[in-house]
Design a protein around this nucleic acid. Structure first.
Lengths: 331, 331
DNA sequence: CTGAAAGCGCTAACAC
DNA sequence: GTGTTAGCGCTTTCAG
């Protein structure tokens, strides 16, 4: 910048003004500065700028998601990217892989980069450690899962009600033995979806059978093996409720392997690409990603821009879509 | 930082040393500093640090991909994220949506954030504008598509050979009229894949029929309509070669709509989730994303760390996997 | 409308 | 081992 000033015969400050589009600069000088900058191949250093800039904003937000290569996270990421870009913001993103430690590390890392705000789909089970950051002016937003021991804006789906509806749907087709396929109960969404399942069974006076509840399965291969085992057992389930996109694949692969895809009903939670092309097409409970994304980032930006109103929790409804696999009646 | 020094009764520099784990600090002082920092809720400002730090590294790289919500880009992103994290790096990412202007804008934006290097799957058709940046010490790596009017490391797939193999495969099943479904020819990979297609037809002495080449279709809906139209026309194609994951969906949806999925063969380029679960399972030409990702980021880091050897282009082979849809014989 | 001086939070260099 | 001074690239403040 100093070199540009020298070459254009102006001062440091004038160069600064030109690059910040301050209107009160002589057009002649502006021209000279731009010319010199071009010649020297100068590009302003934004990070240096935000060091002294009044509001200290870095125009950067951090986003922590479960796994960016999973379509659920990837779609959210894209929504955030577009919204951020529209507002002149840039995104730092990280995948947490359900590891609480990674959440903590990445939060610290992003804060050391001085993001203006942080959006998280948390893997941690205690967020009290964020209180100090709030005191220093950091802004947070939670998505998909609520904060624990910490007050923050949050945007959540109707996990429990969506599951309740899905399982009721299966029950209405005569199913009594419904296999529950879920993540580790320590994960908020996994437990909520289980509660919806349990509630629907209770309402029908069936009760939850332990052998029909498969949770926290390790990897895809072993999960498929477990499901196949249950499908071959005595009094086998006549329907499956898979509570996450990866688990829906597991269920389908297991059903295919047992040649039961036309006989055992299946409802999945979360969208899967090409659901309508499968035979049978997969009945799903879908989350409204566009709305989850939009609401959460809008709230975060509003906080960054000074909104200090009471913390808010927004609940976004899920959508049930019958496509075929969920409408197979019980034998 | 000054406050921490004051509270701990030490100097600025000692605090700096503690947070940079310089070994020659009295453990007693270290303790004091850490205590004071905790009390004041102090976190180092990394961006300020890199301003004065010797090598000036920001430990940040920029990654420009086609569309992070597309599984192809999302998987690459994840590979980069993990590799970067291992090396203490953080990623700035952006989606280009095939808009050359966006590429230019984001490159500038990331450079103004002083990334140490930039990896791009370019949407632009001229990269001469990057020369000035190289002169100032920026490092670049190209992935999926080569640079134009610019010298840079690049990692590419065998687009042409992979397509040649796929189309030969279809020909070996008796197909003569093979529908080509591709992106805008201006896109490097789209044109390469077309060349592979044309080469295979030429070798079989069939020649390319214009009516069987559908390129640069606008949106999914209209693309499906176009394909259906061709499928219903006189001398309709007996096979489809879809040269990109989204286009493979298009082909499948069109085939389903015409109830031709068991009669017309289909080979797709790029992986699609659940390909093996579809009926028929989809025969694919797959890119080796892990290798594409690894090689490209390794090269970039090596440049960042001072490697000034001759620019390199790495070619990663694709893999053909017969799964069913590509083995339907011509009627 | 323009420029000089001070300082953002931090680290390099060089004393002590 | 530890502290002091200067300065990274920029913006602020305030004087002209």
């Amino acid at each position: 910048m100093r070199e540009v000033a020298a070459l254009s015969g102006t001062s440091l400050k004038t160069v600064s003004r030109v690059f910040n589009s301050v209107p009160t600069v002589d057009p002649v000088l502006t021209e000279k500065v731009l010319k010199a900058a071009k010649k020297l191949n100068y590009t302003p250093n934004m990070t240096a700028g935000s060091l002294r800039r009044t509001n200290g904003k870095t125009k950067t937000i951090g986003i922590l998601l479960e796994d960016i290569s999973n379509p659920f996270s990837a779609s959210l990421y894209r929504i955030y990217e577009d919204y951020a870009a529209e507002n002149g913001y840039i995104i730092l993103a990280g995948s947490l892989d359900e590891e609480p430690e990674r959440e903590h590390d990445l939060v610290n890392l992003f804060i050391s980069r001085r993001v203006d705000g942080l959006l998280l789909a948390p893997s941690g089970t205690d967020h009290a450690y964020l209180k100090g950051e709030v005191a220093k002016g950091m802004h947070f937003g939670f998505i998909d899962r609520p904060p624990v021991n910490f007050k923050s804006d949050a945007v959540l789906s109707t996990n429990r009600d969506g599951s309740f509806e899905a399982v009721n749907h299966l029950i209405s087709f005569g199913h009594k033995r419904i296999l529950f396929l879920g993540d580790d109960p320590a994960i908020y969404t996994a437990e909520e979806r289980f509660q919806g399942y349990a509630k629907a069974l209770k309402r029908a006076k069936f009760g939850v059978e332990k052998r029909l509840v498969l949770r926290g399965l390790e990897n895809e291969e072993s999960a498929i093996a477990e499901v196949r085992k249950v499908l071959r057992s005595a009094d086998a389930p006549t329907a499956i409720f898979a509570t996450q996109n990866l688990l829906t694949w597991v269920a389908m692969k297991a059903l295919r392997a047992e040649k039961l895809e036309e006989k055992v009903a299946l409802v999945g939670f979360d969208d899967i690409p090409g659901a309508e092309l499968l035979r049978p097409a997969v009945t799903l409970v879908r989350q409204d990603l566009a709305e989850l994304g939009r609401r959460s980032i809008e709230m975060l930006f509003s906080r960054i821009n000074g909104d200090t109103s009471e913390v808010q929790t927004v609940i976004v409804p899920t959508t049930f879509t019958a496509m075929g696999s969920g409408e197979i009646p019980a034998r």
